[in-house]
Nucleic acid binder design. Structure first.
Lengths: 223, 223
DNA sequence: TTGTCGGCCGATCGCCGACAA
DNA sequence: TTGTCGGCGATCGGCCGACAA
């Protein structure tokens, strides 16, 4: 999946460990996150000194929720001592995403959906800055500027929208055709957020960040 | 869940062990059904002599697929020997569902859905026998007999349909309003079957039996 | 600048009848 | 008896403008 879009969806509070770096792994904390398989395992060490073998980015196929799969390799106490003493660097030397982000600033916009955005009556009001930053420019010499907008989501699925400018007297950008199909497909509701992201290659990416959700929220969904 | 409806949905080939009876449990066969958690466990006995502590009937919340949760208690070799010798009866003496069914014959009907039944164009053709056996009788002295039909599914959820008689010249029973909502909610397709069941209390029950489905079939669902 | 609403057109749903298998 | 289809009315989706926050 797209690195930038993944981080955009995850939000600024999420940072991933670098491959090759060292971490302390707390097995008991891991177990406590899986109450269905809760078990008391005696003799479990409180923490294990590990090296990050790999970090894979994923997104849930149904909900688009982002998550990472981190592969750990337990290291010897010898290595642990050397790291603590500074003989071996904690960081593995691989480029950090923060570093990458500072040099390559993607054009990005995030908007929380309003009642109008998610209702069946009408489309999506595009914030002006979002349209100007992320969308291809419209030929405003025409009376009714419009274009087809193509964007890919985290799974690489291509979405298509009609993007128009200036409806009514106060001018504004709108997404019309294709928008409600997107809302339905992603099961978006008022309060959820969408992210537009234009990569350096000019390709448009589209992500989703859902409002605070409860465990088993789908059990209470309408119809 | 409703005992009769559960058995109706499960079909005549499915019979459950009685509570209190004895069975031979084959752990290896159980493991082979869960390939995701496949593991080779050494020293596993080929079979365990068990008593049925409890049998709970369930239905999947999303698909309405029926399944049973069977609780087993391993028994001593002493009991096993007595059972084999006939000193203790294999059956636990609890009433069998087959026995129950022979004395209480519920009015029941099962129909495989046609293309017309599942299309958005029109409602559901009710077989005449289904209507007469399971539905409250209509007042046919009126020019357009119709009634509201209430039925509960396996989860106790109440469905509502408009039931009419005699549309067009060849008279027939139809479910109109409410039917397509039911088809959508249960994601029914042509080939699936619905079951109508009128209990002794006169209450109507409504079950679903899906056509042969493949693993991960939802991955190929439309939209 | 942008969230919401009234108006309105067109597409689809869904009810009715006819007809045939 | 019942599966399918043509027809057509009612409903809803969805695009436009106006207006106000």
């Amino acid at each position: 999946v797209c690195l930038e879009l993944w981080h955009a969806c995850a939000g600024p509070l999420v940072s991933l460990p670098k491959r090759g770096s060292f971490v302390l792994y707390f097995p008991q904390g891991h177990l406590e996150q899986a109450p269905d398989f809760s078990a008391v395992i005696y003799g479990l060490p409180p923490h294990v000194f590990c090296r990050i073998l790999d970090v894979k980015l994923h997104a849930e196929r149904d909900s688009d929720e982002v998550y990472a799969q981190v592969s750990l390799l337990p290291e010897s106490e010898d290595i642990e001592r050397k790291v603590r003493e500074g003989v071996v660097d904690v960081d593995g030397g691989e480029e950090d995403y923060e570093v990458f982000k500072r040099s390559n600033t993607p054009h990005m916009f995030c908007k929380t959906l309003t009642a109008s955005d998610t209702s069946t009556h009408g489309g999506f009001s595009v914030p002006r800055r979002a349209a100007e930053d992320c969308f291809p420019p419209l030929d405003c010499s025409q009376p009714r500027p419009s274009q087809e907008l193509l964007a890919r989501d985290l799974h690489g699925l291509e979405l298509c929208f009609r993007h128009i400018y200036r409806v009514g007297q106060p001018r504004k950008h709108l997404l019309t055709t294709g928008w409600s199909a997107f809302v339905n497909k992603k099961k978006l509701v008022s309060g959820d957020a969408v992210l537009f992201l234009r990569g350096d290659d000019g390709k448009l990416r589209l992500g989703v960040r859902r409002a605070a959700q409860f465990e088993g929220a789908s059990a209470f969904s309408i119809q």
